[in-house]
Amino acid sequence: MSERYHPGDRVRTSTVDPDHHTRLPHYARGKSGTVIGSDGVHPLADLSAQGIEQPQQVYLVRFSAQELFGQGDHTVTLSLWEDYLGDE
Protein backbone atom coordinates (compact mmCIF):
# COMPACT_ATOMS: atom_id res chain seq x y z
CA MET A 1 0.00 0.00 0.00
CA SER A 2 1.55 3.31 -1.01
CA GLU A 3 1.80 5.97 1.62
CA ARG A 4 0.28 9.34 0.84
CA TYR A 5 2.21 11.13 3.59
CA HIS A 6 5.83 10.99 4.67
CA PRO A 7 7.82 12.12 7.69
CA GLY A 8 8.01 15.92 7.79
CA ASP A 9 4.73 16.44 5.88
CA ARG A 10 2.32 18.91 7.42
CA VAL A 11 -1.27 17.64 7.70
CA ARG A 12 -4.58 18.92 9.06
CA THR A 13 -7.07 16.63 10.82
CA SER A 14 -10.71 16.33 9.90
CA THR A 15 -13.27 18.55 11.63
CA VAL A 16 -16.06 16.01 11.14
CA ASP A 17 -17.73 14.78 14.33
CA PRO A 18 -19.24 11.50 13.07
CA ASP A 19 -22.26 9.72 14.55
CA HIS A 20 -20.34 6.44 14.56
CA HIS A 21 -17.31 5.21 16.49
CA THR A 22 -14.06 6.93 15.58
CA ARG A 23 -10.50 7.00 16.87
CA LEU A 24 -9.86 10.67 16.15
CA PRO A 25 -10.20 12.24 19.61
CA HIS A 26 -12.22 15.43 19.91
CA TYR A 27 -9.24 17.48 21.12
CA ALA A 28 -7.30 16.69 17.93
CA ARG A 29 -9.99 17.64 15.37
CA GLY A 30 -9.27 20.39 12.86
CA LYS A 31 -5.66 20.69 14.03
CA SER A 32 -2.36 20.99 12.13
CA GLY A 33 0.45 18.57 12.88
CA THR A 34 3.56 16.97 11.42
CA VAL A 35 3.84 13.36 10.27
CA ILE A 36 6.73 11.72 12.14
CA GLY A 37 6.37 8.20 10.78
CA SER A 38 4.24 5.32 9.60
CA ASP A 39 2.25 3.34 12.17
CA GLY A 40 1.42 0.38 9.96
CA VAL A 41 -1.70 -0.62 8.06
CA HIS A 42 -4.77 -1.43 10.16
CA PRO A 43 -8.51 -1.81 9.53
CA LEU A 44 -10.10 1.65 9.78
CA ALA A 45 -11.70 1.64 13.24
CA ASP A 46 -14.71 3.68 12.12
CA LEU A 47 -15.69 0.97 9.61
CA SER A 48 -14.64 -2.00 11.79
CA ALA A 49 -17.22 -0.80 14.32
CA GLN A 50 -19.82 -1.14 11.54
CA GLY A 51 -18.68 -4.63 10.58
CA ILE A 52 -16.69 -3.54 7.52
CA GLU A 53 -12.99 -4.40 7.31
CA GLN A 54 -11.00 -1.88 5.31
CA PRO A 55 -7.26 -1.76 6.03
CA GLN A 56 -5.73 1.68 5.69
CA GLN A 57 -2.41 3.37 6.37
CA VAL A 58 -1.99 4.83 9.87
CA TYR A 59 0.49 7.64 10.60
CA LEU A 60 2.15 8.94 13.75
CA VAL A 61 1.32 12.64 13.80
CA ARG A 62 2.83 15.09 16.28
CA PHE A 63 1.02 18.25 17.43
CA SER A 64 2.22 21.16 19.52
CA ALA A 65 0.30 21.87 22.72
CA GLN A 66 -0.14 25.43 21.45
CA GLU A 67 -2.00 24.10 18.38
CA LEU A 68 -4.16 21.68 20.38
CA PHE A 69 -4.90 23.69 23.50
CA GLY A 70 -3.66 27.23 22.89
CA GLN A 71 -1.17 26.83 25.72
CA GLY A 72 1.67 24.61 26.92
CA ASP A 73 5.17 23.82 25.67
CA HIS A 74 4.83 20.04 25.18
CA THR A 75 3.85 17.91 22.20
CA VAL A 76 1.22 15.18 21.78
CA THR A 77 1.63 12.35 19.26
CA LEU A 78 -1.35 10.36 17.98
CA SER A 79 -1.90 7.45 15.57
CA LEU A 80 -4.21 8.64 12.81
CA TRP A 81 -5.73 6.81 9.86
CA GLU A 82 -5.26 8.42 6.44
CA ASP A 83 -9.01 9.19 6.25
CA TYR A 84 -8.63 11.53 9.23
CA LEU A 85 -5.99 13.63 7.46
CA GLY A 86 -5.87 16.24 4.74
CA ASP A 87 -3.14 18.43 3.30
CA GLU A 88 -2.49 21.54 5.30
Binding site: R23, A28, D39, G40, V58, D73, V76, S79
Partner: peptide, 12 residues
Protein backbone atom coordinates in the same frame (compact mmCIF):
# COMPACT_ATOMS: atom_id res chain seq x y z
CA UNK B 1 12.95 19.34 29.60
CA UNK B 2 10.65 18.83 26.62
CA UNK B 3 7.61 16.68 27.44
CA UNK B 4 6.31 14.35 24.74
CA UNK B 5 2.87 12.83 25.36
CA UNK B 6 1.93 9.69 23.40
CA UNK B 7 -1.81 9.00 22.97
CA UNK B 8 -2.43 5.26 22.38
CA UNK B 9 -5.64 6.22 20.56
CA UNK B 10 -5.46 3.57 17.82
CA UNK B 11 -3.66 0.24 17.34
CA UNK B 12 -0.24 0.91 18.87
Amino acid sequence: TEIQVWDANAES
